[in-house]
Design a binder for these strands. Structure first.
Lengths: 368, 368
DNA sequence: GCTGGCACTCGGTAAAATCGAGTGCCAGCA
DNA sequence: TGCTGGCACTCGATTTTACCGAGTGCCAGC
């Protein structure tokens, strides 16, 4: 609840911990208005907006204070105020009520997850489209890592005289691959032997767990197995570089400066950067990073909203939204949260279906 | 009517087949200049540009003719001329010399293809980045279809009680997958049997070829095999929906109108549209489509440059560039051509390595 | 402590003035 | 005949000026 005590609070922090209830109400009005109109908000508008019952003069006085405290700025004298990053931050933390999706949006989400089908990549791609549609922001879907997904199959397939591909199928339906080099003289038979050894060693265990296959008699087989295992180990972490970006066209009219659009698009093209951005924010326990709160210079005029994609209780993936700092935070937060959850359920159900009864246990036992 | 009676030239086509050499030179100067500056080009500039040795008054007269014939337009009276789509078309077809990459760019391409490594997806992704860097356009890489790629491995992996995944590894290192439904009671053993049957039937044959595995005794195995085969048949054509788009941020300053940027970005987000656009253009034997030459309304201010990615002589993939109609065509064409070829070689070498001697033959024999 | 009133600021818009690149046309020249 | 220099003219872009009004800070009074 934003405005809990109406009574005169004594010895409040001079800074951003607490804010005069009236100031808070004014700040909220400014932020809401500005999010809607993208125009500087004047005292008049605030005074006539609901929840405020003082005159514009009083509002002005309070606005001066809010500006001094860093919540608002004036683009120039004799203009209305617009929120600073700090202002948005306070709004998000203290003022905005949880925010719910409209019924039509809720319906859209439900219908999406009922109808969606196909391979995982397609689903994730379309999920990012859904998020963009819901929020009018660019969206990012960070697929779950594979640490805890059970291995359903491992195979080493020869591609050339010195080249082979390790193909791993996971219980959630993901297929990962990695090429390895071979010694000159590895036969198909040896590859098959290696495959079957890997298969028994890894089967039903999470990809992240260490594996320790018994030695075979054949050293060339063992060498292949070893290489394949290290390739699989790389897969655990290295697959993260695939993200699904959607709705980048929304950025075109989100910002007035073309330069901003270009630089934000440029960031979205660098998948590695996007991944670490989302992970950073999520790890710091935030669900939204405003302006410069994340370290990325060229996203200074952006806000990032993230939500985990929890699969069976673990936070393994993430969805993110990228928009201007004056985005509709309540709605974006709600959308990200809901879609993240639903996506997690969806992925989880697939996984559970993969290994009906053993799945839940296998992960717990698998702790190396 | 055009000005044929001003010149004693005998019954030339009144239209765009051939153009007075001087007119051609003027048109070329206008196009080149406009490509460089994005500003309407006046007769003065043309007159002083190399290759023209007449006065600006004469240039003006010719420009009037060129405008009447539809090669140039004036944004407004008393402004210079800018080329029409028809003007660009003539420039591309008749005027522009083949166009070569600068030595530094040539070097960049070589270094890229020496250094590039990793799985195919990553390579294609990075290739599209390379193309963008070379041309300052948005770029698209359409990976080769798999019709003619030899199958190296087929496997059916159970994911759930009624769900399995068909995983196909191809000689070029690509891995495709598709989920199929199962009857209730299919055992792991049956899946393994189906896998081995598929393996023998498909192995070393192109994915596109029909396959006709012998019946096993077990009807449930046969049912799995049949489903897997139809899934594989779908893979042949259905995988095309994955394209690699790069450099979309270049579009931000390619157009002056934000609306244009948005709508072009929106097109690029629809992978299916991009695919059919490229295929259309390529099929019509064009290497560049200017303005409205392709049917897409919202790309009317764009030009599309495509080049095939020939793998072992067949045109199986494509690379494309998307930019404003005033793009640097010679350079774009050269870049697309070179990168397409090099990419094809690269993909081909991988494939050939996969099936050293049989590859060439296996395709021919495979005609069912 | 809030409010209405007031003088003031200053960006945005509109009208007017200016500039100059570029044009079409034409008479004269090779 | 075809090219050229010259010339009057156009008209978008830029600058100038004027003006409006939303918005501000401040202050006296309730």
């Amino acid at each position: 609840m934003p405005d809990h005590h109406e009574r005169p609070d004594h010895h409040e922090h001079p800074d951003h911990r607490e804010l005069d209830p009236r100031k808070a109400a004014i700040l909220e009005a400014v932020v809401s208005e500005y999010i809607g109109t993208a125009q500087p908000v004047g005292s008049q508008h605030v005074a006539t907006s609901s929840g405020i019952s003082v005159s514009s003069a009083t509002v002005r006085a309070e606005m001066v204070a809010l500006e001094r405290e860093g919540y608002l700025v004036q683009p120039h004298t004799s203009a209305g105020r617009i929120p600073t990053d700090k202002g948005y931050r306070f709004f998000v933390d203290q003022l905005a009520e949880p925010g719910v999706l409209g019924p039509s949006q809720r319906h859209e989400v439900s219908r999406f997850f009922e109808q969606v089908h196909g391979e995982m990549e397609e689903m994730l791609e379309r999920t990012s489209g859904l998020l963009s549609d819901l929020t009018s922001c660019a969206s990012v879907v960070l697929p779950p890592g594979h640490e805890s997904a059970a291995v359903r199959s491992v195979q080493v397939v020869g591609l050339g005289p010195r080249l082979a591909l390790v193909v791993v199928v996971l219980a959630d339906g993901a297929v990962e691959k990695r090429s390895i080099e071979l010694d000159d003289d590895v036969t198909e038979v040896a590859l098959a032997a290696a495959s079957s050894r890997l298969q028994t060693a890894a089967r039903s265990r999470p990809l992240g767990a260490g594996m320790d296959p018994v030695q075979s008699g054949d050293p060339s087989v063992d060498r292949v197995v070893a290489r394949a295992l290290s390739a699989m180990a790389e897969l655990v972490s290295a697959d993260h570089d695939r993200v699904f970006v959607g709705g980048s066209s929304r950025l075109a009219d989100a910002f007035e400066a073309v330069d901003t659009v270009r630089s934000v698009l440029a960031i979205l093209e660098q998948q590695l950067v996007v991944v670490s951005l989302l992970r950073d924010v999520l790890e710091r326990g935030l669900s939204v990073a405003i302006g410069t709160e994340h370290g990325y210079e060229s996203l200074a005029s952006c806000a990032v909203v993230v939500a985990p994609v929890p699969v069976d209780g673990q936070e393994v993936g993430a969805v993110g939204l990228l928009g201007p700092t004056r985005m509709n935070y309540p709605q974006a937060l709600a959308a990200a949260k809901v879609v993240g959850e639903r996506l997690g359920q969806r992925l989880g159900s697939g996984e559970r279906a993969g290994t009906p009864a053993t799945q839940g246990r296998s992960r717990r036992n698998a702790g190396r």
